[in-house]
Simulated assay, not measured.
Amino acid sequence: MRIDQLDTPSLLLDKDKMEANLNEIADFASEQRINWRPHIKTHKCLKIARRQIEKGAVGITVAKISEAEVMASGGVKDILIAYPISAPEKINRLSALMKDAQIKVAVDHVKQAKLLQDSLQGTPWELEVWIKVNSGLNRCGVEPGREVLQLAKQIANMPNLTLTGIFTHAGHSYAASSMAEIESIALTEGRAVAESAALCEKEGIPIPARSVGSTPTYKIAGKVSGITEVRPGNAVFFDAIQVGLGVASIDQCALRLLASVVSKRSGERVIFDTGSKALSLDQGAHGNATVKGFGHVVDHPEIRIERLSEEHGIASIDGETTLDLTDKVQIIPNHACTVMNLFDHVIVHRQGIVIDQWRIEARGKVQ
Rank of each mutant, 00 (worst) to 15 (best):
C337Y: 09
E143R: 12
D344S: 15
A209N: 13
C253I: 11
D100F: 10
E67G: 05
H286V: 11
V261D: 00
P301C: 02
I79T: 06
H312L: 14
L323Y: 08
G233F: 09
L6M: 12
L245P: 00
I3D: 09
D108K: 00
I314W: 08
L80D: 02
K328R: 15
I60A: 00
A87H: 14
I303Q: 01
K55Q: 10
G244R: 11
T188V: 13
H296T: 07
D282G: 09
K219P: 00
D356L: 00
R269C: 11
G141N: 02
P88N: 06
N160V: 00
R265M: 15
V247H: 02
H300S: 01
S178P: 06
W36R: 06
H349K: 04
Y218M: 08
G275H: 06
G204Y: 07
L163G: 04
I81T: 11
I131V: 09
L12F: 07
E189K: 09
L258C: 02
S196R: 00
T168Q: 01
Q351R: 15
R146P: 14
R139S: 12
D327W: 06
I65A: 04
A180Y: 02
I317K: 07
L161K: 10
L120G: 00
K90Q: 13
K77V: 06
D273P: 03
F28T: 03
A248T: 07
I271D: 05
E143W: 05
C337H: 13
H286L: 08
C200L: 00
S280E: 06
A106P: 03
T338N: 08
L94W: 10
G213S: 05
A240T: 15
A176P: 06
S30N: 10
Q367F: 13
I271Y: 03
Q154S: 12
S196Y: 08
W130N: 14
K264N: 08
A221N: 04
P84H: 10
N35S: 15
H286R: 15
D318N: 07
N138D: 12
Q252E: 14
N157K: 15
E67P: 12
E189C: 07
K41I: 05
N92G: 11
T215W: 01
Q283S: 12
P206G: 02
R269W: 09
Q367M: 11
I317L: 08
A170L: 01
L127W: 05
E203I: 03
L120N: 01
G352K: 02
V110G: 08
A49R: 07
D27N: 12
N21V: 04
I250P: 09
M98F: 11
L325S: 12
